[in-house]
Amino acid sequence: MAAGRAVRVWRRRMVVLAFVAASGCASLPGPLPDQGAGAPGGLPSRVELSDVPFHAQDAYQCGPAALAMVFGSAGVERTPGQLVQQVYLPLRHGSLQVELLAATRRAGLVPYRLAPRAEALLQEVAAGHPVLVLQNLRFDAFPQWHYAVVVGYDLVAGEIILRSGGERRLTMPIAVFDRSWAKGGRWAFVARSPEDLPASADEAGYVAAVADLERVSPEAAARAYGTALRAWPANLLARMALGNAAYRRHEPDLALEHYRQAVRAHPEAADAWNNLAQVLHDTGRHREALQAAEQAVATGGPRQDVYRATLTGIRAAAIR
């Protein structure tokens, strides 16, 4: 009797578990596909990136180990030991998220933060990009923060495949993974070479990530701006950044070319007119310089004082 009731209770709990597991997947794109059905959004239903290298973590150092794995997949060989110096905080026994992004810049790679959605995660993995994720493996009040690398998924079996801690291949039910990931705000990023656009990249987000890379690694950033312009040929910030970089390197002709393209695509961009005016002036094209400077002032904007100074400078030079 008692045994029969225990079995019934257990069965009921299994039903509840199945229900909770299914509802936990609600954040994934639509309901999980049935056996043999195609995955949502044209993604393959099963992907595993077996080539992603594995580094087991020492003691508290899952940050350096996870970074070494995503770097390796982007063609930058680093050992976790080399990265400890860049990201580990001895008295916190761990690594901060922003320092992982910073170390990625130092390796000459673009750290791209994913939108906090499962679709973006799956999209990157399907494109061959391992994703570094932050998980909270305990409770909000008593957190256990952990970095792992998502290297695969199986929507049919309902599993996420990770390189995590000492485990080369850890599979987690999607619902369990998603709960641990959601507690960390679904924070995730990919580290890609400047030529390799993340699969889920959005225009403004990618260009902003490259702008942050520029401070650390200008040469890598220049290549990544090129990547951005191949995907979004009219992007103003990427175009201007390449122009500015050429200007700083004292290559006025190249700068001129970029600024001209910028004003052609964005005649409303006063900054572009201003910089064009300056480089035209520097290269002795005074009449054109004056016209461009007047265009900048006529357009106006938050940096109107700079445009006025440019115009004044060019006018003064014409008088002399």
Binding site: R13, V16, L17, V20, A21, G24, Q57, A59, Y60, Q61, C62, G63, L89, R92, H93, G94, S95, L96, Q97, V98, L134, Q135, N136, L137, R138, P143, Q144, W145, H146, Y147, S164, G165, G166, E167, L170, M172, A175, V176, R179, S180, G184
Partner: peptide, 29 residues
């Protein structure tokens, strides 16, 4: 800086315990 998560410490037994806790919580809900 003091309130920010610092990902670190984890062993395989931790993972097993965590998975068990996650499943138990799921059952309890």
């Amino acid at each position: 800086i003091d309130g920010m998560p610092a990902g670190g410490n984890l062993s395989s037994t931790d993972i097993i315990i965590i998975m068990l806790i996650a499943i138990l919580i799921a059952i309890a809900i």
